[in-house]
């Protein structure tokens, strides 16, 4: 069982990876969905995080064979993902809540089991087993219309587990679930991972995924910005240089931005470069590259409060690193 590896140079272990994405790209006209993603999963729990529009859903749809890549390939245990045979190896729990509201949860899961190609007795057996597994046995005969968000998530999860797939792709599986339900889901996911299954869970919240697993894939702008354990990503981020752009009011003297630059040089360690420019009479611009972005953010925070610098714009220029940083910082708040 191993976590994700990313990048063209990932070395394969002896066992065949359950999920293998190689240089995967998908464009929607001029819009980039996924760009040059290489990802390899061999088991266990892996989180997929990223902001809205980062490419999580596109990547999931490529993995589940609903979309075909423009370039690159996706293989599930050696089978091309777009082939129906690959879907025998994937359990997919979509993020949409588009059920047939008049049906009961049991009827819905049963119809999904029929689509898997099982005989009638096996359909019944599997339906009962998965509903029991997700704790829905006693509520499965009620119409879906009356289900809470958490019950809907359980039914969605049940239909994904029907054919006992080695790879489970779960899109926002814990959204809308109460804390008790979350704890139950966490237990279930861990059990599934312990049984040798590979789970890929997408979420907006890193801290939620951190409770489940260290392994995360952070996506930004269609690319994999980082793929490793959360602690190792943090370690690497500490030494990774990051460039910030800072627009500051020049003040009456016209030199306030230069004063800020001098103070930053004093306070922030490991500044690699600092460029000062005056794009207008009112605004001064600093372009600063540092190996200690968290120290820089702490320093700028203090200086704004103590020295009353009027900062108009603060932006990390390196998007991928910024996205990782944003997630890591958000998870620590």
């Amino acid at each position: 069982m191993g976590g994700p590896t990313s990048g063209p140079g990932s070395a394969f272990a002896s066992r065949e990876p359950i999920l293998l994405c190689q240089r995967l790209s998908k464009w929607y006209g001029a819009v980039r969905g996924v760009l040059d993603v290489t990802l390899e999963l061999r088991g266990g729990l892996t989180g997929l995080v990223g902001a809205n529009g980062a490419g999580k859903t596109s990547l999931i749809r490529l993995i589940t064979g609903q979309l075909r890549p423009d370039s690159g390939s996706v293989h599930i245990a050696g089978v091309a993902a777009h082939k129906p045979a690959a879907r025998r190896l994937i359990g997919y729990c979509p993020d949409v809540d588009a059920f047939y509201e008049e049906m009961s949860g049991r009827a819905f899961v049963r119809e999904m089991a029929r689509l898997c190609g099982y005989s009638a007795p096996e359909v019944r057996r599997r339906t009962d087993a998965v509903l029991s597994r997700v704790g829905m046995t006693d509520r499965a005969d009620r119409p879906i219309r009356g289900y809470s968000k958490g019950m809907r998530q359980r039914v969605k999860l049940a239909q994904a587990l029907l054919h006992d797939p080695p790879l489970l792709v779960l899109d926002e599986p814990m959204s809308g679930i109460d804390p008790v339900g979350r704890a139950e889901f966490v237990t279930l996911f861990r059990e599934l991972a312990d049984q040798g299954k590979c789970l890929l869970l997408s979420s907006h919240e890193l801290d939620e995924l951190e409770k489940l697993t260290d392994h995360v894939v952070i996506m930004s702008n269609g690319r994999v910005a980082a793929a490793d354990t959360v602690s190792r990503i943090r370690e690497r981020l500490v030494s990774a240089p990051l460039t910030f752009r800072l627009d500051v009011q020049r003040g009456e003297t016209g030199r306030r931005h230069r004063q800020l630059a001098a103070q930053l040089l004093d306070r922030v360690p490991a500044i690699r470069s600092l460029e000062v420019s005056e794009p207008s009479d009112l605004v001064g611009r600093l372009l600063l590259q540092t190996e200690t972005p968290q120290a820089f953010l702490a320093a700028i925070h203090t200086l704004i409060l103590e020295e009353w610098y009027e900062v108009q714009h603060l932006q990390a220029v390196d998007e991928s690193t910024a996205a990782v940083l944003e997630y890591l910082l958000a998870s620590r708040r």
Partner: peptide, 24 residues
């Protein structure tokens, strides 16, 4: 998550020995 008195039978279960219907 499973019902307290119901032992999950699917995911710790024997492999299914039947034949799946083909793609048709």
């Amino acid at each position: 998550m499973a019902d307290s008195n119901a032992k999950p039978v699917l995911l710790h279960y024997r492999g299914w020995r039947g034949t799946l219907h083909g793609d048709g």
